[in-house]
Design a protein around this nucleic acid. Structure first.
Length: 398
DNA sequence: AACTAGATCAACCGCAATAGG
DNA sequence: CCCTATTGCGGTTGATCTAGT
């Protein structure tokens, strides 16, 4: 063995950069089911081309269910300032005092806001001669902290929160559901589906990773029944659940402590346009406001839906395309396919038509455990997936 | 409209700390 | 106690967004 520290992973064989929704869901699904005893082995077991450190960071900073999102409150900022002055840049220790906040987030807030704020306060409060002769940080806090109430709430808060807007889904029977990228779960009333702002933000892929957070800034997983009790997954296997459940097979129980795990965790990470637009029994959303100048398309609802058509904007379609581009298994689709799904049913578009709508049933592989991954379905395996990849069978259970 | 500078923040890197054999 | 593997931490980077010109 050579000298020096061994690299944590083979850098040439791991993905770097921003995480895709698909990767997120894969990581969430794996940890939800098996935990994270061994970060180094986790990527391989979960089928992720990521370094273990990257997975850990992603989980801790963005995916774990107890994260709080949104702007820091004045109280939180005060706490950070106070603790930073007393213990220094011990971000993880500071984070321990702020439930739902991560050390990385706190560090960023400090570097981008609080440090400057503190500096500007000091400039105002300290006589000029003192600024030249005294640079002790501990002296700065003595006069800066009392004025922290001046911190104003950001008038652009709404803008930030808007990025988190999502369309919410409900399984037909109110069953718990698992999160799929670019959609959110049943936590909020489905009436939000009709909110034009949420509608227009459908599938919005902002700069960062907002696909898991709702307009309240709370990680949807926090309200995620399935998350709170992973055993629900198992119990659902024995129930007559909604035909819209997407099921993915589970061939093997991985040993998270071993590196030679050979099983595969199959994950459905696609989202379904139709299920977001329309769920049986729920009134269709109002035609969205075209205030942003997006062209409004009238689209046919797929077979099995109650209504004849729904509305969708260019922006929505773009968002959907953007997501579909990350799904290498999916065939190319066109706007026309989206607008006229019936015409394309059974050809290329079967992957965006809910199995329940088409009435098709997917045969399960004997001896394979299935678990629901999303309350929606749109993959017709025979049309989309190579036949030699049986571990990726998706479809409704009945 | 195009460009630029500043702001933001997710993600990476390297080192330190810790665990376990 | 030593050595190695792994995790955790803090500094830093760089992509993207936003506001200003």
């Amino acid at each position: 063995m050579g000298r020096g520290r061994a690299p944590c992973c083979d850098k040439s064989r791991v993905t770097k950069g921003p995480w895709s929704p698909k990767e997120d869901l894969r990581l969430i699904s794996f940890i939800q089911k098996y935990g994270h005893e061994n970060w180094r082995a986790l990527p391989k077991q979960a089928g992720l081309l990521r370094c273990g450190k990257s997975c850990r960071l992603r989980w801790i900073n963005y995916l774990r269910p107890d994260l709080k999102r949104g702007n820091f409150t004045k109280e939180e900022e005060e706490t950070i300032i106070r603790l930073q002055q007393s213990i220094g840049n011990k971000w993880s220790r500071i984070a321990a005092h702020l439930p739902g906040r991560t050390d990385n987030e706190i560090k960023n807030v400090w570097n981008t806001h609080l440090k400057k704020k503190l500096t500007s306060r000091a400039a105002v409060s300290v006589p000029k001669e003192d600024q030249v002769t005294k640079e002790s940080p501990s002296s700065a806090i003595k006069f800066s902290f009392s004025s922290s109430a001046q911190v104003e709430s950001n008038p652009n808060n709404n803008q930030k929160n808007e990025k988190y807007s999502q369309i919410n889904l409900l399984p037909l029977d109110g069953s718990p559901t698992i999160l799929a990228p670019n959609i959110s779960t049943l936590a909020n009333p489905v009436t939000e589906l009709h909110d034009s702002e949420s509608f227009n933000n459908f599938g919005n892929t902002s700069q960062h990773n907002d696909h898991l957070f709702n307009s309240s800034g709370i990680n949807q997983l926090e309200q995620f029944t399935l998350w709170e009790d992973p055993n629900i997954l198992e119990s659902l296997l024995n129930t007559e659940e909604d035909p819209n459940w997407v099921l993915a097979p589970q061939n093997t129980q991985p040993d998270s402590t071993k590196d030679n795990f050979s099983g595969e965790l199959s994950v459905v990470s696609e989202f379904d346009l139709w299920s977001t637009l329309k769920i049986d029994g729920i009134p269709a959303p109002a035609k969205p406001d075209d205030k942003e100048g997006n062209k409004i398309h009238t689209v046919e609802a797929p077979m099995g839906m109650n209504t004849a058509h729904e509305y969708i904007t260019d922006k929505d379609i773009d968002s959907m395309f953007r997501y579909l581009e990350t799904e290498p298994r999916l065939p190319e689709i066109s706007v026309e396919m989206i607008e006229k799904p019936k015409q394309y049913q059974g050809v290329n578009l079967s992957h965006i038509i809910p199995a329940a709508a088409t009435g098709s049933a997917v045969n399960e592989t004997p001896g394979v455990d299935y678990f629901p991954v999303a309350s929606i379905s749109h993959l017709s395996l025979s049309k989309v997936l190579p036949e030699d990849q049986p571990t990726h069978l998706f479809g409704s259970k009945n």
